[in-house]
Amino acid sequence: MNSVAQVFAKQQQHSTVWQLTIVAFVLVLAVVALGFGPAGWDWRLAFAWPFSPETFGFSELQLQVVTQIRFPRLCVAIVIGAVLAQSGTATQSLCRNPLAEPSIIGISAGAAVFAVAVIAFAPRFGYSPDLILPYAAFAGALLTTCLVYFLANRNGDMQVITLILVGVAINALAMALIGLFSFYADDNALRLINYWTLGSLAGATWPTILQALPLLLLSLAGLYWRQSQINILLLGESEAKYLGIDTRKLKREIIIWVALGIGAAVALSGMIGFVGLVMPHIARLIVGPNLKQMLPLAMLLGALMLLLADWLARVLVAPAELPIGIITAMIGAPLFVYLLLEQQRGRRG
């Protein structure tokens, strides 16, 4: 018979192996993302940037593409992928529902509405939208998270159907508002808005990244710090309270960190769906629901998925570029259906 310590050790070992595997995949994909693209198709590009252009026979421009375009996008893909997966996990814990996800229940759309409002109206008042964008998106995400939470909450639990219906309503309202704002927007703003609604990492340049990065990292740290409490919240709100957790405070914190992360992510890259839904799901299928093992794996998987999606977005229709949201939805939606069916067959998840 196994002892408790052996069972726990085995679980941890299993999850460590998976984490290391995904880290290896992320590293390989990082080389691919840095090396292969319309401006140059050579794995050595990933390593050539510290040297002079002549060393490997690349042009100055190619190296600049790597350092000024590909590298910032690589960083953003990894951070945002992790943030989306973690926020998805946190939302699922908050709603005690494995199908809750910021883009499905309308949080991303709420952030996008505020972001689009800033893009459309800020220039009219003589402000540059860039400065306030992440904060406006944060405000939108915060407002929607609270709205969803209070509309769908029944004694600490949320029914899938209520959540999804609330999400449908909020998404529809958000799309209507975005449409309304685009009506007042000029051509330049219109292009930005279009890019916002489908998501893209093309806007990720060092200045915008540096602006959003502190918010993203804060959200990552805040939620990661609370993982053992969030874990217990999965048992149910009253159970968590009986086990000594100040659930009101914890829920408030989760809402703020999720809104911060999603707000900053939307400000930087627009609405990218399904990462926060599918990656936590896969992580749960692999290592179970315990956040200690599942959260790092979900974040790594999120980074991996966004890295892959962004690279595909750049190369599939080169020299043009696809919005990344299209790719994540094309990978994510079928996977989501598969997971749903799998879950209904009573497997672990």
Binding site: V4, V7, F8, Q11, R96, N97, P98, D157, S228, N231, I232, L234, L235, G236, S238, E239, Y242, L243, G244, I245, R284, G288, P289, N290, R348, G349
Partner: peptide, 27 residues
């Protein structure tokens, strides 16, 4: 100092048996 056992609890997340008991030791 005090523990409460609810009658109906749904567990949508499939924790392992020892994990669930270990949560009792959180504090």
């Amino acid at each position: 100092k005090r523990a409460v056992l609810n009658q109906h609890t749904s567990l949508p997340f499939a924790f392992t048996v020892p994990e669930l008991v270990a949560m009792g030791r959180y504090q």
